[in-house]
Design a protein around this nucleic acid. Structure first.
Lengths: 186, 186, 186, 186
DNA sequence: AATGAATGAGGATTCATTCAT
DNA sequence: GATGAATGAATCCTCATTCAT
């Protein structure tokens, strides 16, 4: 019997390494070799398990989206008023697990590749649709224009991420929360 | 007979071509050769005038910022109330000249390269400082928290650009204007 | 409970898979993994039994030669005149078992590798010597220049194989038989 | 003014080097780097001028076909009887320029790649069609079955090439000529 | 007996950049 | 002023092969 069950471990390690490498490099131009080195394996193994560079990236992004989704569900579970639900969605976006340097820059990769990479585009649309739907639903009892508010908050969160990728604006979460309050309280 | 005064023409053509190529490719990965081809010159000439790829990009971005500045000044000149001035700043961001596909994607390049390219970082900070200062000044008579409002609107505009780079959200300008009104009207 | 006597079965399956894979791929560039996959085993096992890629090929070719030899002997047994013996040798070359797509392309591999692979060269020479000797012997009563006729027919058969590898010339056998008749009937 | 007119020289040198390298290596697995090294340039330049490995090969084969065509035309010009024309076609196939070691092995490359490379397949069909047509035409006055004779001679020539690729059968030309005479003289 | 895991070596390809003219 | 020529360095990817279990 050979050493078994390494595949999920390696995939996991490589996804983690991808995000970390993007965060450390500061660039979107990370190489497969650098990712593999960080994961402690050869670049050949990365190709073996994922098939190619694009799929490594896609897999890393899928994981980020999964983590974000988990964060959202956890936050919503603890919220029992419409106001609390809307705040929970924002809190989730800026939770530690989602707001790590590597994660933020990975988002930029997603945006940068979406126009030319259908798989990335699909992931991005999925995220945007879900966030918008969640926000709209939470905001419905709080404002007569829930759609507009959701659209604004979604774009605002993206913009705050963009700026966070540069290491600035430490109070990103508060900006978003304030915008929410300004909109919902007359 | 050497043609004199070609330098400004060539530089201009190459900057234009850079932005157009970024827009057409949809990627940030445009090659110097592609840019030069689009400008109708050899890639060697592009290096001759600019020194290197990074400087070609920086020059193109400087031009975009210059155009944006002109747009802002023109908009402010026509505005005579605080409200109109704040709106003018937003209008400028979404003016046709600034909201062209290539221009929008060039902004993404700026954000993507800023973390590793000091020249780009300088340009980006310059833009952000100016916009924030302009917004804060215009908003001061309209709200007790002009800094917070300016920070929010700046990030919102960036987020709307990000989404516009994907070809969606045609009503970007209205989203920003609505956010402004929501914030300033009690 | 280790399964006993698997070795001959596996070797056989891998040789068959090699020929089939060459036929299916259309190229000489078949990978050990593809062969092993087709045989339903791991590529490591292929190495375990054969030692290396070259030896897998050599083994597959040895089997083809063995099959061809069997075909020849069977055909010769049924032939009782010199004319019939010569025809039998040609018929054997184009018998279904030898003229299958994979087999034909495997011959090309043999020819392609012979210049750099001594084992392949040995196999090829063996085949050519046998065919020539068989043909010469059969043709001796039929023509005053049996050697020349044998040399010609051997090369002709090879050429017809080469063309058959491209999927053309369905009447290959008849071409060879006609050549034989033209040569032997005054 | 830059150094001009190098392109045709380089293309020529690279085509020559391709054939020479195939001949020297004895394999079909020659690398672009090896070809470029032999031509005295970098592998990047080879890609620059040809676009890719396949096109380097295709170009080299086109040249071989061109040379063969020239040889055929020259030989036919000097032939004034049907018999002489048929012989001329065979002589051309085995002329020094066509029967060089590299050239012969390049033919094998052509045959090996044809099943999976449409460009190669086109070239090969072109050659076969021309040779067949030339042979048929020359043989028409000499035999009641010119098509069959042409088909046979074409395949025979291919088979003799195949064997010549192994460095054997020095008398290839005579074998083909004898086959021709045997067929045409009753 | 058999295999999943893992890698090193090598190959095609791209591209920014330099230089002679 | 301008460019064709040329390359080194880097990157993705493939594959035969080895090894521990």
């Amino acid at each position: 019997m050979p050493k078994l069950g390494m595949e999920p471990l390696r995939r996991d390690a490589l996804e983690t390494a991808t995000i970390a490498e993007i965060g450390a490099a500061g660039t979107l131009d990370v190489t497969v070799s650098a990712i593999a080195r960080r994961a402690g394996v050869s670049s050949a193994l990365a190709h073996h398990y994922f098939g190619g560079k694009d799929q490594i990236f896609a897999s890393a992004m899928r994981r980020i989206l999964r983590d974000f989704g988990a964060e959202v569900r956890a936050a919503l579970r603890a919220a029992d008023t419409p106001q609390a639900r809307a705040e929970a969605l924002i809190e989730a976006s800026f939770a530690a697990s989602c707001f790590a340097p590597g994660t933020i820059r990975a988002w930029m990769t997603l945006y940068a590749q979406a126009p030319v990479n259908p798989a990335m585009q699909r992931l991005l649309r999925l995220y945007q649709r879900r966030l918008r739907s969640n926000l709209t639903h939470a905001l419905r009892p709080l404002t007569p224009q829930p759609e507009a508010a959701a659209q604004m908050l979604g774009a605002l969160i993206d913009g705050l991420y963009l700026r966070a990728a540069l290491g600035e604006d430490p109070g990103a979460k508060d900006v978003a929360l304030t915008a929410l309050h300004r909109w919902t309280t007359p």
